[in-house]
Amino acid sequence: MKFEDKIVVVTGAGSGIGRACVERFRAEGASVEAWDRDAGAPSEDEGVVRRQVDVSSAEAVGEAAAAAGNRWGGVDVLVNCAGVITPNLPAQDVDPGDYQRNFDVNLMGVVHTTRELHDMLAERSGAIVNVASQAALVCLPHQSAYSAIKGAVAALTRSLAIDWAAEGVRVNAVCPGFTRTPMATGQMTPELEAAVSRRVPLGRIFEPEEIAASIAFLASGDASAITGVVLPVDGGWTAGEPALPM
């Protein structure tokens, strides 16, 4: 198994892509630190330690990192899935507070976890996978705040990859398209899902497990020469227009 004896930290672990990652890494032999804002009291069961962590708080992340270090003695993999989305609104109607909330969770969450776990990851030549978004690659209408911040996550991924390459820490990102998660489907009407599916060359929206499989690859030894990449997992959306005018 690819992650036998490995310790994997997953943020946003309570639902969606994060939850699928917990299951995938467990299935491949890892012990998992599952961090989520809504986790409740710390618990441990079947190789999964759950902690309540608000990744927008440097202090909370620092405490969780220390606790993880005490429990396992080190960390091999960090997967940043925690994220929030903003209401679908044209740019002029987006509340600046929504930008701030996006910034605090989607970008500073990655900053805090990577900073706090850096030493442990460097000690084990570990790997980091950030969940950016298709919105980091192409424009999505009425998602200006989310797109801007996810673009920053992609840029941060490249910066960390360069800064930490000499220590053997690999840093990559996946860019999921529309995925069947509570976060995305909260705004998904049947009409919108049908429209999105028509725009996706593979013709459907995706399951969290499919994103988790790509994350597991980038985190594994199979990706030993891969760092600083931003991999679309989008059913072909960013490859081009699916149809000619007709």
Binding site: G177, P201, E210, V233
Partner: peptide, 11 residues
Amino acid sequence: DASFVTGASLL
């Protein structure tokens, strides 16, 4: 494992 990856360039 790449069931939803198509048209991608992996460096």
